[in-house]
């Protein structure tokens, strides 16, 4: 393993993040606060408890997931797309590194940034609602796993994208709807039966449900099913990335 190279990629990517630290932090804090004001205070005051938890607290795990997933994807996809776009990818391809090292560097940095944002949102949430975390270790594990798996997905999108429109396409058209329909702001059990069945095909449902279980000890789907789902998703992304580098798809002629 070329750890020096991995560290170089990682720290180079992180430097980009810290260069714009203000907007990196302010924007998620602001949007989360807005969600709390609108959903928590304005609408939440008219909604009774959901699954024994106040509505304001109930949406916290979903809100964190929403930001973490979006951030992980956009950071990772941009991270690998940008060198392709400006042509600096030649250096990566001519360096004595293998695909695993490149992925660890880029995905690691994107996941770290997303994790950072997730933690900031959690801290912000404490200012608005009372929350206690039932399974802190499980919560952290879920958060990290989500960051990594969606950073992997973002990496795939970044390799695939041929222009900036395509870079936005998948997050906008697929990921955002899946996250919103994944139970970020409601419990799946609140939906009509048909929609409940359809929801079970949405992988994000398992993530949010598992994450919510770590907070409140109860969930829409069994925790093991959640773990299995995210494990499968991560494995699938890894397999695709392995194939990309094996064939040189979209990167090596």
């Amino acid at each position: 393993m070329n750890w020096t190279a991995i560290y170089s990629i990682f720290s180079f990517e992180m430097a980009r993040f810290f260069r714009t630290i203000a907007q990196s932090i302010i924007s998620p804090v602001l949007s989360t606060s807005l969600y709390f004001v609108v959903f928590g205070a304005a609408i939440g005051s008219r909604i009774q408890e959901v699954e024994g938890v106040s509505y304001g607290a109930f949406i916290v795990p979903g809100l964190i997931m929403l930001s973490v997933i979006t951030q992980a994807i956009s950071n990772a996809s941009f991270g690998i797309y940008f060198p392709k776009f400006i042509g600096t990818i030649f250096e990566l391809l001519s360096a004595p590194v293998n695909f695993l090292e490149i992925v660890i560097g880029y995905v690691g940095a994107a996941a770290t940034k997303a994790l950072f944002i997730g933690v900031i949102i959690l801290i912000t949430a404490f200012f608005f609602v009372d929350i206690s975390i039932a399974h802190p270790f499980a919560m952290v594990a879920f958060l990290i796993l989500t960051c990594i798996s969606f950073a992997l997905l973002g990496f795939i999108i970044g390799i695939w994208a041929g222009n900036f429109e395509q870079l936005q396409l998948v997050p906008l058209l697929i990921v955002t709807p899946l996250v919103f329909l994944g139970g970020s702001f409601y419990s799946i059990s609140m939906l009509p039966p048909t929609w409940q069945i359809i929801s079970h095909f949405n992988p994000v449902v398992y993530l949010i449900s598992g994450f919510r279980w770590a907070f409140f000890g109860s969930a829409d789907v069994p925790i093991l099913t959640s773990l299995l789902a995210i494990g499968l998703f991560t494995g699938l992304c890894m397999a695709v990335i392995w194939w990309i580098f094996r064939t040189g798809w979209r990167i090596r002629q």
Binding site: N2, T4, A5, Y7, S8, I9, S11, F12, A15, E91, L92, A95, P96, V97
Partner: peptide, 13 residues
């Protein structure tokens, strides 16, 4: 920074 990155990427301390 970019020159330092290149050195690291090629595995040199």
């Amino acid at each position: 920074n970019t020159v330092r990155f290149s050195r690291g990427l090629f595995g040199k301390p």
